[in-house]
Amino acid sequence: MLMSFEETAREIEKGRLLTLAGSEEVLARLPRGHWIGGTIPYFMGQNGGEESREKIFVQSLPESVEEAEIRFYDAENIPSIAEDAPDNGFTLLLIPATSRVHLDYAANAPGYEGMFLKPIIGWITGVHLGDLGKVSPKVFNGETGAAAEDRAAVLHARLPVDRVASTGIVNLFTQGDSDAISFPETGFSAVDALVAGERRNLADYIAEKGIDTRLPLVANYQGAMINVSFQSVDRATRTTHFYAPVFAGVEYRQATPVADYVKEFQSCVPSNVEHVGFSCNCILNYLYSELEGKRTANLTGPMTFGEVAYQLLNQTLVYLSVKPVKPLTGVNGYG
């Protein structure tokens, strides 16, 4: 929940394992303790969407965590993040936007060794939109007090054998019935794309069709709707830029518009979401859906420059659940 500096400091001093989000100024002044933090001044707080440079969003990780390790990763060793994670537990990952480790993770995480076998969740840290280009996003290791703009802050948490962590998403966007778009190469930007089977300049196609770039491209990953958001369309260079990479070979379609984000959000939250230990949502949902002052169910958290549920996502809420293990009930081992 959103707390003042003093309230947050008290939570840290209680020895709790925390993940924090706030402005660089307040995070840098916090006492050392068992926390990792990232910079962002936008939140979905207990009273609704809110912008604040003074408050801190505090999420207390489940008490069932037996052991936690906080460390930085750079672009060289981030590929081992899943291998380093405990066999039973979860990993919380905070990456400064536009850093090299951000770009590497976004493009290559699906291929990292052991990826998808251990829950990895997190977010891309950012800055106030008025400070874009003036200050850099940061992450903090609360145990040492160190901040970084070129490394990711990672918390590996180990759980007892009777608990299991899982990562889920809430994405309101679905594939519309527009042309199928695929890309010859993986990347954060594209010049040409295969549109309905025909090679086209994507920027030209967007202009020609009058496409609303607030609606992301959506891919269907075996039933999971995965967004890639438009960042900008450069008409001069005829290049389209994205907030996450488009992947070669994946088929995208532009999303169907969402009429009322808050109303549809309530109906999209799965009924079995429980024991939530962490969640965050996207700054683009905050901006495009004008969420300031509006509440989105009980799933609160920072509004971020990108979300991580194993791989980098856009315009998606991600959450972590830690639940008791359901013992096997069947006679053949699985039913």
Binding site: P110, F116, S166, T167, G223, A224, Q311
Partner: peptide, 18 residues
Amino acid sequence: ALKTDALPLQFMLNRLRL
């Protein structure tokens, strides 16, 4: 055609099929 709502499995299947 495996039906699942387990996110890591959906991601893994997508990668394996590609």
